[in-house]
Amino acid sequence: MTGPTSEVAGVLLAAGGGSRFGGPKALVEFEGERLADRGVRLLADGGCGPVVAVLGAAPTALPGAVTVVNPDWATGMGSSLRAGLRAVPGSARAAVIALADQPLIRPAAVRRLIEAFEAGAEVAVAEYGGQPRNPVLISRAHFAEVCALAEGDVGARPFLRARPELVTRVACDDAGDPADVDTLEDLRRLSAVRADVDRRPPGR
Score class of each variant (00 low, 15 high):
G3W: 04
P4G: 07
T5G: 12
G10P: 10
V11E: 03
L12F: 09
L13F: 05
L13W: 08
A15Q: 15
G18R: 05
G18Q: 03
S19I: 04
S19E: 09
G22T: 03
A26P: 07
L27H: 07
E29H: 13
E29L: 12
E29N: 04
G32S: 03
E33D: 12
E33W: 00
R34L: 06
D37N: 13
R38A: 03
R38S: 03
R38D: 00
G39N: 12
G39Y: 12
V40K: 01
V40W: 08
G49M: 13
P50I: 10
A53K: 06
A58R: 06
P59D: 01
P59E: 01
A61I: 09
L62A: 02
G64N: 01
A65I: 07
A65K: 09
V66W: 11
V66N: 13
V69E: 05
V69G: 02
V69P: 00
N70G: 02
P71A: 03
M77Y: 11
G78D: 06
S79D: 13
S80M: 07
S80V: 06
L81T: 10
R82S: 14
A83Q: 09
A83S: 12
G84R: 08
L85Y: 07
L85H: 06
A87N: 14
A87S: 14
A87W: 12
S91H: 14
A92Y: 02
A94C: 15
A95K: 05
A95P: 00
V96G: 08
I97L: 08
I97W: 00
A98M: 07
L99Y: 11
L99S: 08
L99T: 10
D101S: 09
D101H: 13
Q102C: 10
Q102D: 13
P103E: 05
R106P: 09
P107Q: 07
A108D: 10
A108N: 07
R112E: 03
A116F: 10
E118P: 04
E118V: 01
E122R: 15
V123C: 03
A124L: 06
V125T: 13
A126P: 04
Y128C: 07
G129S: 14
Q131K: 15
R133F: 14
R133G: 15
N134T: 15
P135M: 02
V136S: 12
L137S: 04
S139A: 14
S139P: 08
A144K: 11
E145V: 13
C147R: 14
A148V: 09
A148R: 15
A148C: 03
L149S: 06
A150E: 11
A150H: 11
A156Q: 10
R157K: 14
P158W: 04
L160G: 12
R163F: 13
T168H: 09
A171L: 13
C172G: 12
D174C: 08
A175T: 09
G176Y: 02
G176D: 06
A179F: 04
V181D: 03
T183L: 00
L184Y: 01
E185A: 13
R188A: 02
R188F: 01
L190D: 04
L190F: 10
S191C: 09
V193N: 04
R194Y: 11
R194C: 03
A195T: 11
G203F: 11
R204K: 13
